[in-house]
């Protein structure tokens, strides 16, 4: 599925200073029953966001009009647990294009990259600075520059670089996906398959 190309993103951010945000919180299993990729944003953080009677929980950050933006900032070990790509779909469908944390779970990181969300891993010190800056001013903006691999707090100019491999970076900037790449090496794969013992 095509996704928005990613180069430089300048946006306010939504703070979620909670550790070990697992994919069951991002999208509970009972909302995984669709056979199409549609509408998952409505159930993003469903049980943190809504009461049992479907009324919004006023103390949850997504229900607080003070905070908005295309960047979600989470505590360490973001996206742990289930491999459900629906978690990344829900985050994308809600409108986020970038998630910042000091630590991502492996499968979530891969899923995010595959659907056009940039996971930006920063030091825990920089993460604290981001949380503090948003708390001081919810309208403060972050700039995530993928070509330069930097994330900057625009108010103070404080910046940190982040890692991403050159292949994935190129994919995100151009909107490519892995399947295009793999289909281009079809003959090589078929020849390899012939060498497998089982």
């Amino acid at each position: 599925m095509a996704y928005d190309k990613f180069t430089v993103l300048r946006s306010t951010a939504v703070p979620m200073p909670i550790e070990n945000v697992d994919t069951d919180q991002i999208i509970p299993a009972r909302f995984l029953k669709a056979t199409e990729r549609k509408g998952f944003g409505d159930n993003l953080f469903r049980d943190w966001r809504y009461n049992n009677d479907d009324t919004p929980k006023s103390d949850f950050v997504l229900n607080n009009p003070t905070y908005s933006g295309k960047i979600l900032v989470g505590g360490k070990n973001f996206g742990s647990g289930s491999s459900r790509e629906h978690a990344a779909w829900a985050i994308y469908d809600y409108g986020f294009r970038c998630v910042v944390s000091s630590f991502f779970a492996d499968i979530f990181r891969g899923n995010a990259l595959n659907i056009g969300i940039l996971p930006v891993q920063v030091s825990s010190e920089f993460l604290e600075k981001i949380f503090a800056a948003i708390e001081a001013d919810p309208n403060t903006e972050l700039e995530v520059n993928l070509p330069e691999q930097t994330i900057t707090l625009l108010a103070t100019g404080e910046s940190e670089s982040f890692n991403i491999n050159g292949y994935k970076k190129n994919n995100l900037i151009n909107g490519y996906d892995d399947i295009d790449y793999l289909l281009s090496m079809k003959n090589e794969i078929e020849a390899f398959a012939d060498t497998r013992p089982f």
Binding site: E85, H86, G110, N111, N114, N165, L182
Partner: peptide, 22 residues
């Protein structure tokens, strides 16, 4: 290991996935 749905499609189409070595 577990994979996401994009990778399920990848394996169906190409019998391969693209993974950094852990």
């Amino acid at each position: 290991f577990g994979i996401g749905t994009s990778e399920v499609e990848m394996v169906l189409a190409t019998q391969c996935i693209m993974q950094p070595k852990p």
